[in-house]
Structures are given as structure tokens and as C-alpha cells.
Design a protein around this nucleic acid. Structure first.
Length: 479
DNA sequence: ATGTAC
């Protein structure tokens, strides 16, 4: 399965530090451009074939890009960014978004520092351990009353959650798209996807998803950190999760529909996992409508988990949590960007890549206009997470990395360490752990991942973003 | 990532 690896490993040249180019050759329509250090690139060479494959998509403009955390994915590499020109027959591909549609990160800052939290950390972690649903399968902080309410969640995202009393208007200003993506079309969401989503609203899921209590360990840019609401020593809560079974089912359903449609439209791709359809054709519109519904479900999910964390912090410490930002790293969006000196309407796929708007961007709320968009990079359990900001002239349609990639399979990781042993190690390092399963915990051991700090350094070196702060965990809630 | 396969 996977890519047709007929060609040898793609040849690339180092164009400038942290920037490598794969020259176009048939059937590529554009070059490939990979942002990485030499070391990170060496680990990812196999995935360059996927960068090449993406470069063949109808309507692609600029280049087929990859971020420093590139690794093998379904069709597109994870860490891939590709934009297609909608008016020129550009396509949308579910593989360019991924199975976990709108997976992303939300960061909240407490009016409390680590010394203030220390005596209550155990109680806070116990509280979070009780109220944060996690692990595979059903369970969520919201009992959705029925199909009609699920439709409202799919249409309204975080905005709907706030309208129902779960958060305030300020939260929405600090969410990408104001908390809800326009154009959600619940009619394009199958019965099966709805069934899977009904019982999971407000849940973490499993794998690398988590809720962490963190502290700001290092600030690299005081002024920007202050604008984001962050200061050294401050306690934060980071939530990393997506659209659970609903997004997964939507991806499956629409990959199948597009696979069938491609033959009718005469579109050929080098890998069936790149199934796609023109944005303005029925299958393209249907996917984008369903994808937006899943995106909103994912944002409501994070809004509700944040509210649950707020209640626990309020009860155990009296502290309030204010939203720094909420941003997705698995999404396709319609955005305007210059192409050959002309502004064009593009479908920008970001899969394991984060939008990073620069200072002054009109879509940023007033209070972030001078600082740029907060970019939230979740680290591996027990290590650092990072806060970045967008920079002027950012390449790849203003995109940057999203996190650390795996270097060990789940199986390898579980063989390398037991869950109980790992928990003991983390606790002795000062990280409180509340996990759902020992096996799941072991699979997420830090040794199984690349160092996210290297990824962030390469992203900054490539001119994609700038570092603002580094966060370290005090406690982790895991699926 | 995912009721870790239809």
C-alpha cells in the first residue's frame, strides 16, 4: 500500500540553510520545497516521494512544501502544505488534511504561577483526571441531546458552545476563524459519521492527544509573549485533540467518493491515497462542507474541554484561565495569496502544518495585530512545548511546523518501556500523570519521538516563524 | 489519528 515508489528516492539540492528543493520533472507540475535541517531531512528521505507525488495534483501552485517535521502519511506527508488555484481547476484532497480533521491545539494561561499552583497540583490533576474524558471509544463532557444538537455543533463550533454558556465572547476572538469555519454542510456528513460523533463531544481521544498543565519555562520575546498573555513561570493548560470518530469517518467516506469520481473526471494521481476532486465540482464541494463540519466539531471539542479545565482550576485554586489561542494543524482553507504577482483564491491544504499569520494580518484580532498569530506546538509527553509567532514574508502560504514526528513505532515504544515504569519516571521528574491505559502511555514515551526543539529551531531557521516561549509540563492527562 | 479491517 502507500505510494507507488516506482521512482528512486527524490533528488534534492540545498538552496539555502534549512531550505531544500526537489526540481520539477514529469509528471510533477511544480517543484518540491522542504524546510528542514540536514539531520531532520536525512530522517525523512523516504517521505520525499510523497512531496513529489503531491506536486502532480491538478491546479497546484507555488511548490509542494514540507515542514521540518515531515514524516510519512496517508497520501500527503504529515508536515505537507499544498495550495491549488480554485479558478484553474484546482483540487481538494482529503489526504491533504488527514484523518483527524481539524486536529489542533488550544492554550490557556492561568493568573497563577508555578509556586502558587504547587500545593494544589495533586488536587488539580485528580480533578482533571476525573472530568476529562479520554481514551478510545465513546465518552464526552457533553451529552448531546440528539441529531439536531449535533448539527448545531457542526455548524457553529466553539461559537455554539459559547452560546450555550460554555465560555465567553473573548474566547472566540482568540480562536482561528472566530471559533467556527464558514461553509459547514452537515448534509454531507454520513449517518455513520454522526453516530460516531454523537457520544464524543468534549473528549481527548488517544494517541498523542493530551491535556497538560504546563509552566512557561523560557521567554524568547518579552513583548510578543506579553501580547499573547504569557510570562515566565506562569501556569498554562494546553489541549491537543481533534474531531474523533466523526472526522475519521468523514475522511473515509469522502476518500471513497473521490476515488470513484476521479475516473469520471479523467484525473490521474500517482497514489490512490491522493484521491481528489476539483474544489468547484460536486465531490469537492461535498468534502469541503463535511470537512468544515468536522472542523467545527473539533473546535467545540476543545472549547468544552477548556471549560472543564477552567472549572477544576477555579474550584481547586481559585485561578482563572484565559485563552491564548486555538489553532488547527489539519485543515484545508480557502485563502487569497499572491501567485506570480496576482492575488488568487487558493485551497491551502495544511496537514501536520500550522497557519502562521504575520503581524499586521487583517484576520488577526486587534490585540494580536502587532504580535502576529500565536502558533502552538505541542511537544512530546514530558518534554517541552513551544509558542511561536508568524513572520512577515513567511513562505509556504504562511505555514510552519506542528510538532515532533515519531521515530519509533507504537509497538517498538511499548517494547522499550512499560507504562507503570514510565509513569514512575515521569513522576520522579516532577510530572504528574493521569492516563487512561498503561499501554497507551508506553506508546507515547518521549524516546519514541524526535526532539520538538530541533523541529522548532529548523522552522525558525527557515524563516517560517519566530520563537516566543517554551513551556514544560507539570502534569499530563492522556488517552 | 481511528469502535487500529468490510
Amino acid at each position: 500500500m502507500g505510494a507507488t515508489a516506482a521512482a528512486a528516492a527524490a533528488e534534492y539540492t540545498e538552496e539555502s540553510p534549512y531550505r531544500f528543493r526537489i526540481a520539477r520533472r514529469d509528471p510533477m507540475r511544480v517543484d518540491g520545497v522542504v524546510f528542514a535541517s540536514r539531520e531532520l531531512l536525512r530522517d525523512a528521505e523516504r517521505s520525499l516521494q510523497q512531496v513529489v507525488n503531491v506536486a502532480t495534483l491538478p491546479g497546484i501552485v507555488g511548490a509542494s512544501y514540507a515542514m521540518p517535521d515531515i514524516h510519512w502519511g496517508y497520501g500527503f506527508p504529515i508536515g505537507g502544505v499544498a495550495a491549488t488555484d480554485v479558478e484553474a481547476g484546482g483540487v481538494v484532497s482529503p489526504g491533504g488534511v488527514g484523518f483527524d480533521i481539524s486536529c489542533g491545539v488550544r492554550l490557556l494561561a492561568a493568573d497563577l504561577d508555578r509556586r502558587g499552583l504547587a500545593p494544589e497540583l495533586g488536587a488539580v490533576m485528580d480533578g482533571l483526571g476525573e472530568v476529562i474524558p479520554r481514551g478510545a471509544g465513546p465518552g464526552g463532557v457533553w451529552q448531546v441531546r440528539g441529531p439536531a444538537e449535533l448539527e448545531k455543533i457542526m455548524a457553529g463550533g466553539s461559537r455554539y458552545a459559547v452560546e450555550q454558556g460554555h465560555g465567553d465572547e473573548r474566547d472566540l476572538r482568540r480562536c482561528e476563524d472566530g471559533g467556527a469555519v464558514a461553509g459547514a454542510d452537515p448534509e454531507q456528513v454520513s449517518g455513520r459519521a454522526r453516530e460516531r460523533g454523537l457520544g464524543q463531544v468534549g473528549s481527548l481521544g488517544s494517541g498523542n492527544h493530551f491535556l497538560e498543565v504546563q509552566q512557561v519555562a523560557e521567554v524568547y520575546d518579552d513583548a510578543v509573549a506579553r501580547a499573547f498573555g504569557l510570562a515566565a513561570g506562569q501556569v498554562c493548560v494546553m489541549i491537543h485533540c481533534g474531531s474523533r470518530g466523526l472526522g475519521h469517518q468523514i475522511c473515509s467516506d469522502h476518500v471513497r467518493a473521490m476515488d470513484r469520481a476521479m475516473a469520471r473526471y479523467g484525473i490521474t494521481v500517482p497514489d490512490r491515497q491522493l484521491a481528489c476532486a476539483p474544489v468547484d465540482f460536486p465531490e469537492g464541494r461535498a468534502y469541503l462542507g463535511a470537512m468544515a463540519a468536522a472542523a467545527n466539531y473539533g473546535r467545540a471539542n476543545r472549547q468544552l474541554l477548556a471549560e472543564a479545565a477552567r472549572r477544576i482550576f477555579r474550584r481547586e485554586t481559585g485561578a482563572r484561565l484565559s485563552l491564548v489561542y486555538d489553532v488547527s494543524h489539519n485543515l484545508a482553507k480557502t485563502e487569497e495569496h499572491p501567485v506570480d504577482g496576482e492575488r488568487r483564491r487558493l485551497c491551502v491544504h495544511r496537514k501536520g502544518a500550522t497557519r502562521a499569520f504575520p503581524p499586521g494580518h487583517p484576520e488577526l484580532p486587534e490585540e494580536l495585530r502587532d504580535a502576529g498569530q500565536p502558533v502552538l506546538i505541542p511537544g512530546t509527553m514530558g518534554t517541552s512545548s513551544h509558542v511561536l509567532t508568524g513572520v512577515p514574508g513567511g513562505a509556504a502560504f504562511h505555514s510552519t511546523c506542528h510538532g515532533a514526528g515519531r521515530v519509533m513505532s507504537r509497538h517498538q515504544a511499548a517494547r522499550a518501556i512499560g507504562g507503570r515504569e514510565l509513569r514512575a519516571r515521569l513522576e520522579s521528574d516532577g510530572v504528574a500523570v493521569r492516563s487512561a491505559s498503561w499501554r497507551g502511555l508506553a506508546e507515547e514515551t518521549p524516546e519514541a519521538y524526535k526532539d520538538v526543539t530541533e523541529v522548532v529551531a529548523a522552522s525558525e531557521g527557515a524563516g517560517l516563524c519566530r520563537r516566543v516561549a517554551r513551556l514544560i509540563p507539570l502534569g499530563v492527562v492522556k488517552g
